[in-house]
Simulated assay, not measured.
Amino acid sequence: MNCFGPDCDIINCSPIISNRLNVTCIYDNRIISCNDNIKPGTIAKYSCNDQYEPVSSIHKFNKQAICQKNGKWSSEILKCTPKCGYLKNSVPLIVNGYEIDFILPWHATVFIKRKSGFEFACGATLISEFVIVSASHCFSGLNESDVKIAIGKRYSNITIHSDEPNARIYNVLRILRHPLYMDKIGNYGQDIALVELTESVELNENIHPICVDWQNDDILTENQMGIVVGMGITENETFSDITRMAKLQVISTENCINSQPTDFRKYITFTTFCAGLDNGTSVCNGDSGGAFQVLSRDLKTWKIQGIVSLSPRKKSTFYCDPFKYTIFTKIEVYLKWIKLILDEIEEKTLEKEILSKYEPIL
Rank of each mutant, 00 (worst) to 15 (best):
D146H: 11
K63E: 14
Q64N: 13
K148S: 09
A167L: 06
A135T: 03
P82S: 08
L104E: 03
Q51H: 07
H161S: 11
W73F: 10
K60P: 07
C122W: 04
I160M: 09
Q68H: 09
K115S: 08
I100S: 09
T125V: 03
D36M: 09
N70K: 05
E99W: 05
S57V: 12
I43N: 08
N143F: 14
P92S: 10
K115Y: 15
W73L: 12
G41A: 14
K83I: 01
S162N: 15
P40I: 08
R168C: 08
N96G: 12
T42I: 11
E129F: 03
I77K: 05
C84D: 03
I103F: 08
T159K: 14
R174G: 01
E129W: 02
V91C: 08
C34A: 07
R30F: 13
D163N: 15
Y86G: 04
L93F: 15
L176G: 00
I151R: 06
E129Y: 03
F139H: 04
P92M: 05
V131P: 14
D101N: 11
I58F: 12
T81C: 02
A121V: 13
I31K: 10
A135L: 09
H107T: 04
I31T: 14
V95F: 10
T42R: 04
K115L: 09
K115I: 08
T42G: 08
I66M: 13
L142N: 01
S116T: 14
S74N: 09
S33V: 04
N157F: 14
P165D: 10
Y170E: 08
F102L: 15
L104R: 01
N62F: 12
I169D: 05
K153N: 07
N96S: 09
C80R: 00
N70A: 04
G117T: 10
I43H: 06
F111E: 03
C122R: 00
H161W: 13
T109R: 05
E144K: 15
P54C: 01
I175V: 11
R30K: 11
N37L: 13
D146V: 10
S74W: 14
D101L: 14
L142M: 15
A65F: 08
I127L: 02
L173Y: 07
H59Y: 12
A44I: 02
G97W: 01
G152D: 02
N89E: 09
C122I: 11
S90A: 13
T81Y: 08
P165F: 13
Q64G: 06
I127K: 04
H137N: 07
V95L: 10
K69F: 07
A150Q: 04
A150N: 07
N62A: 03
K39Q: 15
K88D: 03
N35I: 13
G41V: 03
S140A: 12
T125M: 02
G117F: 11
I100M: 11
K148M: 13
E53D: 05
E99A: 12
N49K: 07
L93T: 06
A44W: 02
